[in-house]
């Protein structure tokens, strides 16, 4: 986050709680986003019958999400090189609901009905006759990348593999087909998400607006249950930086204050609580996930926030 001016960065100054005005806030995104040239990232939507899940298998997409948009996701797959540990995991990268909404709502990505797309494509492939699975490769003991092509050719294939994703899918052809026939709207995604969880439509809106409010300030964001919060915030990519804050969406009790403040301080963080600037703004009338609701997600968040930490005395 935040311009490379060096020295300390005065977040207190830049993000005065009550005076949030979207136009006056500089985008603190590390990279200025430019959507004109790049095609949208296709977000594979999985498990449409249960809770819908967006899982990314394409490493190029993972790269773009992280480097360009500061979207982290959570790796949930087994790392085949080291399959007996849980510290370093691999694809798929699971995006959580706020990341999904943010990417789609900002126009960086679109949702794809993955299972139907892939089944239809497989059918088509099979109808064309001979398949080329290409899943047998040459594997050398040391680093395979260091071998020259000729050296590799001279050896017999000895390894059978499962790739992360379908390597042909980024053909122009594929993109058009997906966009046309397999796109899932944000509305449908949210509808099934809300149906399969205990979140209400108002909560989804309010929490998403919180996420957006934080994203605008350039933070990197992860889920926060490990620390008793809804989110954790990082001042930069968590690969390099310790997290700053634990975010609580609903702070309702002083007990939470004591617990949260104490916990945060013991792990060198603080607690951030967020609320609406004007509560009447909450037009909680619609119970349905309709177009109006989807439009309301795109509104500028009007939020105020406070940071809590132990005082060090008492």
């Amino acid at each position: 986050m935040i311009e490379a001016t060096g020295g300390s960065i005065d977040i207190e100054e830049s993000f005065k709680a009550v005076e949030i005005d979207s136009t006056s806030i500089q985008s603190n995104q590390q990279v200025i986003l430019d959507t004109t040239e790049i095609p949208k990232i296709l977000l594979p939507l999985i498990s449409r019958n249960g809770q819908p899940e967006v899982l990314i298998f394409n490493v190029e997409d993972i790269k773009r999400l992280r480097d360009k948009y500061g979207i982290l996701g959570i790796l949930i797959g087994t790392l085949a090189q080291y399959p007996q540990q849980n510290f370093f995991l691999s694809v798929p990268l699971k995006l959580f609901i706020w990341e999904v909404i943010w990417l789609v709502e900002s126009g960086y990505a679109q949702l794809i009905d993955q299972v139907n797309y892939r089944l239809d494509k497989a059918k088509e492939l099979q109808s064309k006759g001979k398949l080329q699975n290409n899943n047998v490769i040459v594997m050398t003991k040391k680093d395979p990348n260091s071998k020259s092509a000729s050296q590799l050719e001279s050896r017999e294939a000895n390894f059978i593999v499962t790739p992360n994703t379908d390597s042909h899918k980024y053909s122009k052809d594929y993109r058009t087909i997906c966009a046309d026939d397999y796109e899932v709207s944000l509305k449908d995604y949210l509808k099934s998400y809300i149906e399969s969880t205990s979140l209400s439509q108002n909560q989804v809106r309010s929490y998403y607006q919180n996420f957006k409010y934080l994203k605008k300030q350039g933070f990197f964001i992860n889920p926060g249950l490990k620390f008793g919060g809804d989110l954790v915030l990082y001042p930069g990519d968590p690969l390099r930086f310790h997290s700053y804050s634990i975010v609580k969406f609903n702070m309702v009790d002083l007990q939470d204050f004591v617990v949260g403040g104490r916990l945060a301080t013991s792990v060198k963080k603080n607690i951030v609580i967020i609320g609406d600037v004007d509560e009447s703004e909450e037009d909680g009338s619609t119970e349905e996930v309709n177009d109006e609701f989807i439009q309301s997600l795109a509104k500028e968040p009007k939020k105020m926030s406070f940071s809590i930490e132990w005082s060090g005395f008492g």
Partner: peptide, 14 residues
């Protein structure tokens, strides 16, 4: 909710 419980449990664990 799980968040409240997790926070309490962690403080107590510390």
């Amino acid at each position: 909710d799980w968040f409240e419980m997790a926070a309490k449990a962690r403080v107590i664990g510390t």
